[in-house]
Amino acid sequence: MSPQQKFYWLIGGIVALLVIASLIGWVLRRRATAENSIAVIDNLNARVNAWWSMVFIFSAAFIIGTTATIVMFAFISFFALREFITLTPTRAGDHRALSLAFFVIIPVQYWLISDRWYELFTIFIPVYGFLLLPSFSALAHDAENFLERTAKIQWGVMITIYCISHVPALLLLDIPGYTGQNALLLFYLILVVQLSDVLQYVFGKLFGKTKIAPVVSPSKTVEGFVGGAASATLIGAAMWWITPFTPLQSAGMAFIIVLMGFLGGLSLSAVKRSLGAKDWGTMIKGHGGMMDRMDSVSFAAPIFFHLTRYFFT
């Protein structure tokens, strides 16, 4: 099968899944009578509808090409950082540092990917961003909560720009015998992370009893995690034919993606709560904000990128 054919098979599979999900949602909604189950089902249907739009935007960017994919992720970083900064108490003195983050760091980081400048891509934010962002804030002569303010901005920039940019950075890798198919690897990562999130949600709703971290993330349960992680790992293994991995390697990679995604969801939920919010935003109906969908991706992407680069290039 050519990469093109593989891609259309994938899209076909996802569309079929969404059709099933929409049908289930429709049947459930017709049967529901109790008030709180109606609320849960309405939220479920809103989520499924949002998935339709997300799959559409994603596939469109993939079909248009590499540049469109990179630009799409630049916008994802933009909206994710916007949500992060909205919840973070910054002061007028941070204005220049924030302008730098939004209008310089995001474009440069993604330009480095399209320019295939790997060395600078890896250090641009951890070195140059890390040192220049606080310098800009310091030049504004406001020392109040300076360390807290800069630490929060750094964290937001690392998660929403640096970590998320590792998804399209998969396009940079030169994997022997896999030339011209990197976009499929990107699809693999996103698919495993998101399916793992969805399956953990489904298993949690059906069998969830024991809460893992009730204070940090009340919806995460042991049953949900085990069921979701196991099934997402199996699906990941079954997707080996779109990756450069063997089925066993693919299972291992999927498991690491699932695990990192879980930790990302948990850590960013803790961040969100420490900032006093329940959702990151309201951009994606039923899901919350952009960061509510990208939290697991942001933790899984850099590790997946690094492991693939280390072992397969």
């Binding site: 916007r82 949500e83 900064i85 007028a92 204005h95 302008s99």
Partner: peptide
């Protein structure tokens, strides 16, 4: 007021 405080030239993206 956070997005574009008095004196700022560019607005910063904040919801």
């Amino acid at each position: 007021n956070r997005s574009m405080p008095k004196g700022a030239i560019l607005p910063v993206p904040i919801t």
